[in-house]
């Protein structure tokens, strides 16, 4: 029976001809658009996650505390809500870091009459405080420390990156939905044509006692096939584009976003694309199924 149903579905696909091809092309385009934006968004999400981990708040101190005072201060700040970690950086360490940063120009430092750099505390916010609001609240709390001269740093720009990522996902979904609606309508048109072409078969099937499921399953299957073919083509296009473009973009992405590579879609998204295609086509086939007899 399954062989019969699949055979009839393939026959129906051939009958729909160019309209079925149009439906497949539209499904391919909609899923490729959705997948493309998903791919960009997924990589931006990776970048956001990496940069969120690197958000630091620096508490510049009014004066360099004695080692015992510094230890007590670190413990005091560690107890502030929203703080995941605290690192004390003395004036000498700060200067050493500056020398390292300046590299071959480090000799400039030697000409300074005194170390101008303040001692500081490098505060790592907890995950809950790594949002713009959380970071701002933490900055306010740290500013109340009597030892604090100035408190700097927040995750604002990381959040802007995150907003871009969300915007991209929304645009991708929007374009995907518009194209998917067009694809869906084309599948229903193809199925309507098929229904018209197979009305004699349908009549005979009913006459000989075929169940309603046997009558509409080939229609559902041909729609699902259109969706699956479209999804596979979209994935093939995405894989080809990714393998061509990613190596060229990776140096730029490494500098700007700090990502070592541009990853392809995770398996769950690939599966979602395939299922979306199948669902889109299947629904088109299902909705146009012949009505029941009186």
């Amino acid at each position: 029976m399954l062989g019969f149903l699949i055979g009839e579905a393939l026959r129906d696909l051939r009958r729909a001809g160019r309209v079925a091809v149009s439906a497949i092309v539209l499904i391919t385009l909609s899923l490729a658009a959705l997948g493309g934006f998903w791919l960009l968004s997924a990589n931006l999400e990776r970048a956001v996650a990496r940069w969120r981990e690197r958000v630091r708040i620096i508490v510049y101190l009014k004066r360099e505390p004695a080692p015992a005072e510094a230890k007590a201060l670190v413990e005091q700040v560690q107890a502030v809500p929203g703080v995941a970690g605290v690192l004390y950086i003395g004036k000498a360490e700060a200067l050493a870091s500056l020398r390292q940063l300046l590299g071959k120009d480090a000799s400039v430092v030697a000409q300074l009459p005194a170390n101008p750099l303040p001692a500081s505390l490098e505060v790592t916010p907890a995950a809950a405080a790594a949002t713009p609001e959380g970071a701002r609240a933490l900055v306010e709390r740290l500013s109340t420390l009597p030892e604090a001269d100035e408190v700097a740093g927040s995750g604002d720009w990381v959040e802007r990156l995150s907003q871009w990522q969300r915007l991209l996902t929304t645009i991708g979904l929007g374009i995907g939905i518009v194209l998917a609606a067009a694809a869906f309508l084309t599948v229903t048109t193809a199925t309507t044509l098929i229904l018209h072409a197979r009305r004699e078969e349908t009549e005979i099937m009913r006459l000989v006692g075929a169940t309603e499921a046997t009558i509409w399953l080939p229609l559902l299957l041909q729609g699902t096939m259109q969706g699956l073919i479209g999804a596979v083509l979209a994935l093939a296009a995405l894989v080809a584009t990714h393998s061509l473009v990613a190596p060229r973009l990776e140096p730029l992405v490494s500098i700007t976003l700090g990502l070592p590579d541009l990853a392809f879609l995770p398996p769950v998204n690939v599966l979602a694309l395939v299922l979306t295609g199948a669902l889109l086509g299947g629904m088109g086939g299902w909705l146009v199924r012949p009505g029941r007899e009186p």
Binding site: E200, L207, A210, E212, E293
Partner: peptide, 22 residues
């Protein structure tokens, strides 16, 4: 409805136009 299909499996029908699938 499902019993209508079962009933028709026990009945053969022939029409004036043969209704063959071309």
């Amino acid at each position: 409805h499902r019993d209508v299909a079962a009933l028709r499996r026990s009945i053969g029908v022939v029409f004036q136009d043969a209704k063959l699938l071309p």
